[in-house]
Design a protein around this nucleic acid. Structure first.
Length: 595
RNA sequence: GGACCUGUAGCAUAAUUGGAUAGUGCAUCUGACUACGGAUCAGAAGGUUAGGGGUUCGAAUCCCUUCAGGUUCACCA
């Protein structure tokens, strides 16, 4: 049983005996004692004053006395205003350490046999390369999946690739017209970059065409509709839908280029999926649901034949589900893919990692599914994350401020190379070892920088600051890990071992602070899982690294003369390294043995 | 215009979900036995938590309101 739960029972018993009332257990919340006061855990007695009938000081003091007498876990207590600060006995921390430090899976819960959680993330369009916004999405989705796994869930990571539609037709058309038949390998170019360039080419050519039409006297909107390029792209989409062999073949070829490019990006980022859905295979699925809805009378048809869902009773608008020509829209497809996922996996949760500009879309999605009588509509959860902005504002493709994912990663790795070389840290490294190290540091810095921010919040990505490797950064954590490994290597070389030594009888302040933080790790993982927030893990592992550095600065480890204490400190260092490694891995951050 | 979201030191961000004197990093200033690895550590300075009202023992957090910014309300995805 956990410390908090044990102490809660002790507390409740004490309260009942002293004041003859039994408070609601939920009223008793243990929090970490603030560092300026002695103690480990604090209970706030203010909510209990009505039941105790005494003032805050007296209530707290009497409870403290009673608890101390009734359990050996409490070694001392003090009262400040209405706060009862409890000092947990060193023996408790030491026996916790003895047990936990032999557990290689510390922090991970065994996988339960309940239904799986499906996490969708990434979900790119195939007409352009991945950019900074996708980076946040990918890192978040992947990390949340890992955290859920660590908390005992079975997780299925899925990607829904938007591989069809007018956007890819635009790229295809541009390549036909301006591509000169050149393949990515002819141009020494990643395939996704080439297709992206073609998309831009289309846009430019279209604009030029529209402009000439406007100067010829057309209204802008009209010109956009009438432009030859636009109508050609639309014709191409129609042909694609009819299954035209030439178009399909070009489409497959160009999407193939894009996937090869994406694979490189995903691989470097360390992202993977258990299942990939393609929209070209799922975009018709929602139609059956719409038909069913019409039959049940929860959807209605307008005079022109289009199908709608009336959500005005729920404070929303009417939502189109089928166009007059019978084709489906984004919402229709999402209805279908949700149903597909439920049939595929029968999950307890369907988590969608999608930017907060689609909040409305997901509100509507759930409502429509509810109206369609799908009891699992409530299993749908939109993990709505904030935009990534640059110091000068949002990324704008028109202004060329879009930060490309590949370039970003490369820049981070290059900076890691420069910094590390500058510091002279790679003596004795082979070229391959050094490269692997730069990769770990550069990507660790990037991942930590992005994941340490609460997902829901809009974040500012400052390229200058993100490549700072001091302070609250990934490399700081990696450095701490490497330092510990240096110690444990030396300890092993010197033949020091924990075997045969018991535990010391008490703890120095810095030792206790460390043990206390290590104790908190499983709770942090659980909390991060329920909150879907890697930021909690990131902030935790930073605190842990910082706490170790304080300990390291003040307390001798290998230099300690007393063998038993030295053995304990080596063990404590090693266990800290293990937890740093474990928590980092939940963020997708690798830690180096040396750096 | 309707709906939703956000606002914390110069900058970037925390705050155990209503708890103590609002933490941390960067930047600025000062220090660390001549390193068990200085990508570290110790310290200083920096705040009316956008403004105003309210709820209560207690508010960055909940309610009302004003201001500022953002998203959305597509037969785009």
């Amino acid at each position: 049983m956990s410390l908090e739960l044990t102490l809660r029972d002790t507390f409740l018993d004490a309260f009942e005996q002293l004041f003859s009332h039994k408070p609601e257990p939920s009223l008793i919340q243990f929090q970490k004692t603030r560092p300026e006061f002695p103690g480990d855990l604090t209970v706030n007695v203010f909510p209990l004053l009505k039941l105790s009938g005494k003032g805050p000081e007296e209530t707290a003091t009497r409870l403290g006395e009673h608890m101390m007498a009734s359990t050996s876990i409490i070694a001392a207590f003090n009262v400040v205003k209405g706060f009862l600060n409890l000092v947990v006995a060193d023996s408790f921390w030491l026996s916790f350490f003895a047990e936990a430090s032999t557990n290689g899976q510390y922090g991970w819960q065994p996988t339960d046999d309940g239904a799986a959680v499906v996490v969708e993330f990434s979900s790119p369009n195939t007409n352009k390369p991945l950019h900074l916004g996708h980076v946040r999405n990918n890192l978040l989705g992947w990390s949340v999946s890992e955290i859920l796994k660590a908390s005992g869930k079975q997780v299925i990571k899925v990607n829904l690739v938007n591989d069809r539609g007018i956007h890819i037709c635009k790229s295809m058309l541009a390549w036909q017209k301006f591509g000169e038949g050149k393949l990515p390998e002819d141009l020494q170019m990643k395939g996704d970059k080439l297709v992206g360039d073609m998309y831009v080419r289309f846009d430019k050519a279209l604009k030029a065409e529209v402009e000439t039409l406007v100067t010829a006297g057309l209204e802008k909107e009209q010109a956009e509709r009438q432009a030859a390029l636009m109508t050609e792209a639309q014709e191409m989409l129609l042909k694609w839908e009819e299954g035209d062999a030439t178009i399909r073949s070009l489409w497959e070829t160009m999407n193939g280029w894009v996937y090869q490019g994406f694979d490189v990006t995903y691989k470097r980022m360390g992202i993977d999926f258990d299942k990939i859905y393609y929209e070209s295979e799922t975009y018709l699925l929602g139609k059956a649901l719409v038909a069913e809805g019409l039959e049940k009378g929860v959807l209605f048809k307008k005079a022109d034949g289009s199908v709608w869902c009336d959500l005005t009773d729920d404070g929303l608008d009417e939502k189109l589900l089928l166009r007059a020509d019978g084709t489906s829209v984004y919402m229709t497809q999402d209805l279908g893919t949700a149903q597909l996922r439920v049939s595929d996996f029968d999950p307890e949760k369907l988590i969608y990692v999608v930017g907060n500009e689609q909040n409305y879309h997901f509100d509507v999605l759930k409502l429509v599914l509810k109206k369609l009588g799908r009891p699992w509509f409530d299993a749908i959860e939109h993990l709505s994350y904030g935009m990534v902005e640059l110091p000068h504002g949002r990324m704008k493709s028109r202004e060329g401020t879009v930060v490309d994912a590949d370039e970003l990663m490369e820049e981070m790795v290059q900076t890691a190379r420069e910094r590390t070389t500058e510091l002279g840290k790679i003596e004795g490294f082979s070229v391959a070892e050094a490269d692997a190290l730069f990769e770990k540091i550069g990507l660790g810095a990037l991942k930590y920088f992005i994941l340490k921010v609460d997902p829901r919040k809009t974040m500012v990505f400052n390229p200058e600051e993100s490549i700072d490797f001091n302070g609250n950064t990934g490399p700081f954590i990696q450095y701490t890990y490497a330092r510990i490994k240096s110690i444990t290597r030396k300890a092993a070389d010197a033949g020091h071992s924990r075997d045969g030594f018991g535990l010391p009888s008490d703890l120095a302040e810095k030792e206790k602070n460390l043990v206390r933080l290590l104790y908190a790790y499983p709770g942090i993982v659980a909390q991060a899982a329920t909150n879907r927030s890697p930021a909690l893990v990131a902030n935790y592992v930073y605190d842990l690294a910082k706490e170790f550095n304080k300990f390291y600065q003040e307390i001798p480890i290998l230099k300690e003369a007393d063998e038993q204490i030295r053995a304990f400190r080596i063990g404590l260092s090693g266990f800290t390294a293990q937890v740093i490694r474990s928590a980092s891995s939940l963020l997708g951050m690798h830690v180096p043995e040396r750096m």
